[in-house]
Amino acid sequence: MGAFNERQIRFVHELMYQIKVGEAMTTEVVTFPPTAVFREIQRCMKEKRFSGTPIVDCGELVGIVSIDDIITAFDQGYIDEPVHTRMTRDLHTIPQNYSVIAASNLFAKYRCGRLPVVARANSRELVGILTFGDILSHLLLKMNTIAERIEKEEQSLHKTLQGASDTLHFELAPDNFDLAGMASTSTKKHLQKLGVEPAVIRRIAVICYEAEINVIIHSLGGYMEVFILKDQVRVHVRDDGPGIPDVEKAMHPGYTTANEKIRALGFGAGMGLSNIKRCADHFSIKSSMETGTDIEAVVYFDPSSAATEKENQA
């Protein structure tokens, strides 16, 4: 759960860097000239429900009037005077090409709730206004779009798999004991979803697990593919070497080249290959000291076709 939250936060954080101020800002901004009086602005704020407005003179941003400024004007008794003498001229602005993370940092730094957006750095040309709410709603919109796209992609992938036969592919890294078994567990779960008979699933899962462990213990790495066809499952495991010097010997139960460390973990009893053969209806192994080892194991869903296959193999 913790890792998942961290991933989500990192995702949002990355988005904050990607989204530009120009995308998130509000462009329909109510502005006033410097000659406007405070009371006029106060009425407009009340009516249109906003809490700050830029003051623009001949297309140039010259100041800003916030609700605080209005309250002070009431308090000090200059509510009916023009704003240009009293407004905040010491402005913090943000260029529209900056990312919203920069805006968010400025909100925190100046403890303000809105920033006038200018066309470019060192410019006074007002193009919009940005509040924290604008950032949040744009973030949600963006996440929603991404979620929809992923969903669509998954659906189209699902359709392809339905059309052809189902294939699972797993990369197997050498020496990674903690991850060993993940591919087998996923395969088992997948077959359960497809409603395959439990006894058949168990045989396939054992084949995958033993093969996976073999690759992780003995090889330089490889991959596993599980092909799910109408009447059978084929497990194909390939590694990049170093290869088995004597395959016939390796097939013999109890023959092992595993060291003590591997045995202490419960592996390397020399039963892996014979176990795979025992669970499979058809089993083949090819090994070369140059290119590595290839294993293919087939399990049929229907026991009668399995029997025929075993007879043929014998």
Partner: peptide, 17 residues
């Protein structure tokens, strides 16, 4: 029932029901 203590005992348990 085992004397092993690593995560693979759980994987094995899961795979063999």
């Amino acid at each position: 029932m085992t004397g092993l203590t690593n995560a693979q005992i759980i994987r094995t348990a899961e795979i063999t029901n």
